[in-house]
Design a protein around this nucleic acid. Structure first.
Lengths: 130, 130
DNA sequence: ATATCAGTTTAGAATCATTCTAATGTATTG
DNA sequence: CAATACATTAGAATGATTCTAAACTGATAT
């Protein structure tokens, strides 16, 4: 991601100082799962001086533009995923950690959806023991 | 579930008035997905007069004894499922509703779990469009 | 460039689900 | 039925997230 400002503008987002810093971190080529809290910690270490409110705003702005996925994993906090392609996850409750599954999987034996409903996408969550 | 008191005792739970009322509702033979709030509303309609704290306590007590499953579905509230068998779900975001998938499904193409980790269970969530 | 203005950021307050506290009540056991 | 261990409760506390409204800043038109 060389030109973050251009990238943000392409997505109808004004390239403010704060958004540039956050986008630079999130879209550095390595997929990440972040919460407002983990992102805030990272930014604190970078001495970015970005308020928590802005972190929440920015994550939602990025999400609304499709730059992030929201994960419904554990009900304590909202995870955002920089990998917006359709994929699945391993989840270790013990480590409170998610690991991407980027290979293609097939689910067979799926019943028909309720009438008038269409299947949008299928998410597989593989729970790990230890 | 005819003898709720016996059922509770079998699960090392004292059959208090409140637990009996809640268990009678939850385990009436029809599987349910409840949150503290939806359960509270149901109980209000029944004029059960059970405090919110007790509803939270009871849901967690039942969960700890394996009488309920906790679902990690949407990150706003915790869902409890009276169907504790391994199964999957349809989820309609629009309707904020879950529907059980009780048929057997197979997931193929699963990669190996990270080293030293074992797969515990696989959960499939089928998102509906409308 | 500069003024203008819509879009952003921010600190702190507000909200909302959930958990905690500690006082009161109740099922069980002997 | 007394003792006691476990439960219930109102209300306070917590913690993640959202809101508010004042200050700021990037984009646009002059």
């Amino acid at each position: 991601m060389k030109d973050i400002k251009h990238f943000l503008r392409q997505n109808s987002l004004r390239p403010t100082k704060q958004r540039v810093i956050i986008a630079n971190y999130l879209f550095d080529g390595v997929n990440k799962h972040v919460t407002a809290e983990t992102l805030s910690n990272k930014l604190l270490k970078m001495k970015a001086g970005i308020s928590l409110a802005t972190i929440y705003n920015t994550l939602h702005d990025f999400y609304e533009k499709g730059l992030l996925k929201k994960l419904m994993i554990n009900s304590e906090r909202i995870y955002f995923d920089t990998n917006t392609a359709h994929h699945h996850h391993f989840y270790s409750k013990k480590d409170q950690k998610l690991i991407d599954i980027n290979v293609d999987m097939k689910v067979s034996g799926l019943p028909k959806p309720p009438k008038n409903k269409k299947i949008n996408k299928i998410e597989v969550l593989v729970h790990l023991d230890n």
